[in-house]
C-alpha cells in the first residue's frame, strides 16, 4: 500500500534500456567514407531509385515538426537524430539511458530498387553506426540494417556483423 515506486534505499537499481533510438545521417555524405568511389559517384549523380513518387520526402508528410520532437533539431543543422552530443545531453543523460539500441531507418538500402546500391548502402550504414555512434558512445548498440528482399546478402551481412560486434558493445 502506497509503497514508493522506486526504493531509494536499495543498493541495486533497474537498468534502463531504450530499445528504439533513431540515428540519422546529417546528409548522405556522412556515408561516403564507407562507400567505394564508384558508389559515391553513383550516389552523387544517379542517386536513390525507390518505389514512391517523391524521392526525398514522405508522400504523407508527418504532423508537428515532421513527427520529430521540435526541440530535437540540432543547432548546427541537420535532422533530429543526427547530432550525437545533442542525443547524449537531451536523451541518454537526461533520461538515464544505460543502453540505447540504434534503429537506423534512413538510407539503409531497405527501399532501394538497385540491388547493388542497396547492398552498398546497407553495409555503409552498418559501418557508420559503429564508427559515428557506438565507438564514441559506449552506451549505444548498433542494429544491423539489411535490404530484406535480398536474403543472400542480408544473411551474409548479419553473419559478418554478428561476429564483428563484441556482445558487450564495448
Amino acid at each position: 500500500m502506497n509503497a514508493p515506486l522506486v526504493d531509494t534505499t536499495a543498493s541495486q537499481r533497474l537498468a534502463f534500456v531504450d530499445c528504439d533510438i533513431h540515428p540519422i545521417q546529417r546528409s548522405l555524405a556522412d556515408l561516403f567514407p564507407y562507400m567505394s568511389a564508384r558508389w559515391v559517384a553513383h550516389a552523387k549523380s544517379i542517386g536513390p531509385h525507390i518505389r514512391q513518387g517523391l524521392s526525398a520526402m514522405q508522400a504523407h508528410p508527418r504532423m508537428m515538426a515532421a513527427g520529430q520532437r521540435a526541440d530535437a533539431y540540432p543547432e548546427r543543422g541537420g535532422p533530429p537524430g543526427s547530432d550525437l552530443a545533442l542525443m547524449q545531453r537531451q536523451h541518454l543523460d537526461n533520461a538515464g539511458v544505460e543502453i540505447g539500441m540504434l534503429v537506423s531507418l534512413s538510407k539503409g538500402g531497405m527501399e532501394e530498387r538497385n540491388t547493388e546500391y542497396a547492398r552498398v548502402l546497407s553495409h555503409a550504414v552498418n559501418d557508420w553506426q559503429i564508427e559515428a555512434w557506438v565507438r564514441p558512445e559506449p552506451r549505444l548498440r548498433a542494429g544491423i540494417v539489411v535490404p530484406q528482399e535480398d536474403p543472400e546478402f542480408a544473411a551474409k551481412e548479419i553473419r559478418a556483423r554478428a561476429r564483428a560486434i563484441p556482445p558487450s558493445g564495448k
Partner: peptide
C-alpha cells in the same frame, strides 16, 4: 511551417535532378 514541410525537397522520383 509547423510540420517542417517547408524544408522538404519536392522532387519527383521520375525526374532525378543530378543524373547526366
Amino acid at each position: 511551417l509547423t510540420r517542417r514541410i517547408d524544408r522538404m525537397d519536392f522532387a519527383l522520383t521520375s525526374f532525378p535532378a543530378r543524373t547526366p
